[in-house]
Design a protein around this nucleic acid. Structure first.
Lengths: 204, 204
DNA sequence: GAGATAAATGAACGTCATTCATTTATTGGT
DNA sequence: ACCAATAAATGAATGACGTTCATTTATCTC
């Protein structure tokens, strides 16, 4: 029969479906429908829905901007990379639990990113043994921040329990109205600066 | 009829089920069975499975150790809190996507934690406006690190693509065999120190 | 043109969370 | 002590969903 389907097409359709309907809308049936095909046909090209998620993840990884590591000072490269990384995965938080535990072995795009980042750290003067833990720490922060980026602006509204949490409630109020893209943008920037300063001190 | 069920009992049963069978094993049917009851009976006490997850989350929050904030220097209190927080949620990563976006309004245990942490920051001399963003940044890091704690030791094995990622592969090798509880313990410690140093500099 | 092969189909399955009409036990009022 | 009201448990049913499989269909190769 005509080769209507392939992994690239499935990945593209999955991404479009996710952008339109979110991860709840990403079902094998909906994916098949968007490709004009029966659900069971998908299984000739992917072994499971989990594999679809892995394909999407690899595609997203290729969109993370790590270009700064070959052109900018280390601090700026890290910042650019971290913002790009968080921005992309903030819209794909359901993938984070997959990525964080997924061996990198068969993920060429992910490996390409790690290679470029590692090179940037080496060029900046990091001792080899410090590089992977530093990247892991930064990634942990980026993934956590990606979740926060989806939080509602009033997530810290203490409601009727405000009286029993006076210091917290006052600290929340002191922030005033949020104006950034993400309510947590200020926090992201502060934590990222702290990490960059702290990890940067490990350079030779 | 006899009041066999209540929210506390459901929460306790859910926690035991999770510890024995993991989050895949936490189904409404299994939960009901462990309570000796029909699945539909649960819906007299919780409105949905999501509410069960929220109950579990609140219970876990009450187990996070934030005691150091009233007894230890700020740096040590943050470290103790962060390790406790990560240790608990490393076994409950499916909750993280819920927590990170869940308004704190009806979560007394969570609010109690925030109040204590805020007080600790105030006592340490932080300006009020810096406190919430600092906590948010720390939490983001803790949540991300909780995911990493579940990663397999060989997650960075580049496999047959090793030749095309020489710097990364070498950096991974330079780490030697892992001996910590979690393979990512070294990374967690390094990033946490960096955050503590960087955020600590915001004190008056 | 025949046979092998890759790919699509549609029906079926098992697992879930959830709903609902019904039954059952307990509680409060007289 | 009885009766009505209410809270709570039941079991059958529903509708998604991911996945499997025997069968059919189109394309490629010799």
């Amino acid at each position: 029969m005509a080769a209507i389907l392939d992994q690239d097409g499935i990945t593209a359709a999955a991404l479009e479906l996710i952008s339109k309907k979110g991860y709840d809308g990403l079902t094998m049936a909906a994916l098949a429908r968007s490709l004009g095909v029966a659900p069971s046909a998908l299984y000739n090209h992917v072994s499971s829905k989990d594999e679809v998620l892995k394909l999407v993840e690899e595609d997203l990884m290729s969109k993370v901007d790590f270009g700064g590591f070959s052109t900018l000072p280390w601090e700026d490269a890290v910042r650019q990379w971290a913002y790009s990384y968080r921005g992309i995965f903030a819209k794909h938080t359901p993938l984070i639990s997959v990525i964080a535990v997924l061996p990198v072995t068969d993920a060429p795009q992910t490996l390409a990113m790690y290679e470029a980042v590692t090179e940037g750290f080496l060029r900046a003067g990091f001792p080899e043994q410090q590089i992977i833990p530093s990247i892991v720490a930064l990634e942990a922060y980026i993934f956590g921040a990606a979740f926060d980026a989806n939080a509602p602006a009033d997530i810290f509204d203490s409601g009727k329990l405000a009286e029993s949490t006076p210091h917290f409630t006052s600290a929340v109020r002191s922030l005033g109205p949020q104006t950034d893209n993400y309510p947590s943008d200020l926090a992201f920037s502060m934590g990222l600066d702290a990490l960059i300063a702290g990890l940067g001190a490990l350079r030779a």
